[in-house]
């Protein structure tokens, strides 16, 4: 007997899958000597390029572009690191205790220690373990990423009702997805949403890490990355 055909995905989740950005690569500078300066320079450059992609991606989330420009900015300024961390964690799910910053930049604990990335590594691993345990799927990842943006708790939102409507539509999309794809676990949407506090904690640690690097002034940082760090 063939397994029952899965129901079609909700419109929003299918749309989020379509607008999911292409992979980008870290491309570490081969002329730089290995060490923490090279590792951090590579990560800051990668983060800057990822930010450009994230801003472009956000515009494709149904309902985001109809928010005022000021509210779009506030949501991104609050949530950008959560989006970055969630993407890194999703890429790292197939690995065991390795962090996939990019396809060409996979770091294990030993390499993290040598490269001065151990704090970041140790901060990200618990979140990766949590999503591994849940066996998070791509549809759930794209939904959760959009929810993290809409639910960023910025203190500067002008139109709270409009942001609430965005949250509601994304929340509903996740619930509909789980209702149709995981009827065996009626609490799955809730379990995913309950990971958001750890995502925020992890992102806060990552922002603090990069902010202290910025203050030390030894690593070159591009303007968009600096701008977003300063907004935190």
């Amino acid at each position: 007997i063939p397994p029952p055909a899965k129901k079609p995905l909700t419109k929003i989740v299918s749309h989020l899958l379509v607008v999911e950005p292409e992979k980008i690569y870290a491309m570490p500078d081969p002329t730089m000597p290995d060490g923490d300066v090279k590792a951090l320079t590579t990560l800051c450059d990668l983060a800057d390029r990822e930010l450009v992609v994230i801003i472009g991606w956000a515009k494709h989330i149904p309902g985001f572009s109809t928010l005022s420009l000021a509210d779009q900015m506030s949501l991104l300024q609050s949530a950008w690191m959560e989006i970055l961390v969630l993407s890194i964690v999703f890429r790292s799910l197939p690995c065991e205790d390795e962090i996939v910053y990019a396809e060409d930049y996979v770091v294990d604990e030993e390499q993290a220690r040598i490269s001065g990335l151990l704090d970041l590594h140790v901060a990200i691993l618990p979140l990766a373990r949590r999503y591994k345990k849940l066996r998070m799927e791509k549809e759930e990842f794209v939904s959760l990423k959009a929810i993290a943006l809409a639910n960023s708790d910025s203190m500067h939102i002008e139109n709270i009702e409009a942001v609430q409507r965005l949250q509601d539509s994304l929340h509903e999309a996740l619930q509909d997805f789980e209702g149709s794809q995981h009827p065996e676990d009626p609490r799955r949407a809730g379990k995913l949403l309950m990971t958001l506090p750890l995502l925020r904690q992890t992102a806060t640690k990552a922002v603090q890490h990069f902010y202290s690097i910025k203050m030390q002034g030894k690593i070159p940082m591009h303007k968009l990355f600096l701008e977003m760090l300063e907004a935190k």
């Binding site: 390029r49 900015m73 991104l76 591009h222 968009l224 701008e227 907004a231």
Partner: peptide
């Protein structure tokens, strides 16, 4: 907005910022 020039610029239009 002046402080967050690049974010503002990227959200407002589809052109790449000059300094990235």
């Amino acid at each position: 907005k002046e402080k967050h020039k690049i974010l503002h610029q990227l959200l407002q239009n589809n052109t790449s910022p000059v300094d990235l």
